[in-house]
């Protein structure tokens, strides 16, 4: 009798486990538990955990808060589009808008300082993808996500969009500068 026929005996559940199966199930189960405990473990001892802090918002409200930061801390503008580059004080709240098809404004942060980075979309879903760090976060419209981050290495980073957002999705890219004090 094979697997495409009914089991030969009606009491198939009485067949004892083969040693090979029993051993493997035990090993695999222990490994599954290890994988589970790694996640809470990392919340306690690891340093890279995505923030749980988020608020409902509206495009207007979020735009206004971002504008205030831009008005106060813009240090220069870049490209033909005159995108403001904002250098907020260390430890402060930084706002980044995702919209079709732009990240706005550009950010300049200080190495080794911690910031509260706010992320929200004005329209559709976008994907915050910081390269070459390779930190990837989903950006929703209507939700303001606050991510606390600490840039550890000075340099010029890129923020690209990695959630498909329409025909010019691939043009949606910006910079993030990390400078030494």
């Amino acid at each position: 009798m094979s697997a495409i026929q009914p089991p030969a005996v009606r009491v198939w559940w009485k067949q004892p486990l083969d040693r090979v199966e029993g051993t493997w199930i035990a090993i695999a189960f222990v490994w599954c538990l290890v994988m589970f405990f790694m996640m809470p473990y990392w919340h306690v001892y690891g340093k890279q955990n995505l923030s749980n802090e988020a608020y409902r918002t509206t495009p207007e409200r979020y735009q206004q808060k971002t504008q205030e930061i831009v008005d106060r801390y813009t240090v220069r503008t870049e490209t033909d589009l005159k995108v403001p580059v904002v250098h907020p004080p260390a430890g402060s709240d930084v706002y980044l808008i995702a919209r079709l098809w732009q990240w706005w404004p550009m950010l300049e942060l200080e190495e080794g300082k911690t910031y509260r980075l706010h992320l929200a979309s004005m329209d559709w879903l976008h994907g915050f993808s910081l390269q070459p760090e390779n930190i990837n976060v989903e950006v929703h419209p209507g939700y303001e996500h606050v991510v606390t981050l600490t840039p550890t290495r000075a340099g010029t980073y890129s923020i690209i969009c990695n959630e498909y957002c329409g025909i010019n999705h691939h043009t949606m890219a910006s910079r993030l500068y990390v400078v030494k004090r």
């Binding site: 690891g46 995505l50 994907g127 990837n136 990695n162 959630e163």
Partner: peptide, 12 residues
């Protein structure tokens, strides 16, 4: 599917 590891993989 691991919460933290997803950060380096999501949507890539």
């Amino acid at each position: 599917g691991t919460e933290q590891l997803n950060l380096i993989i999501h949507n890539t």
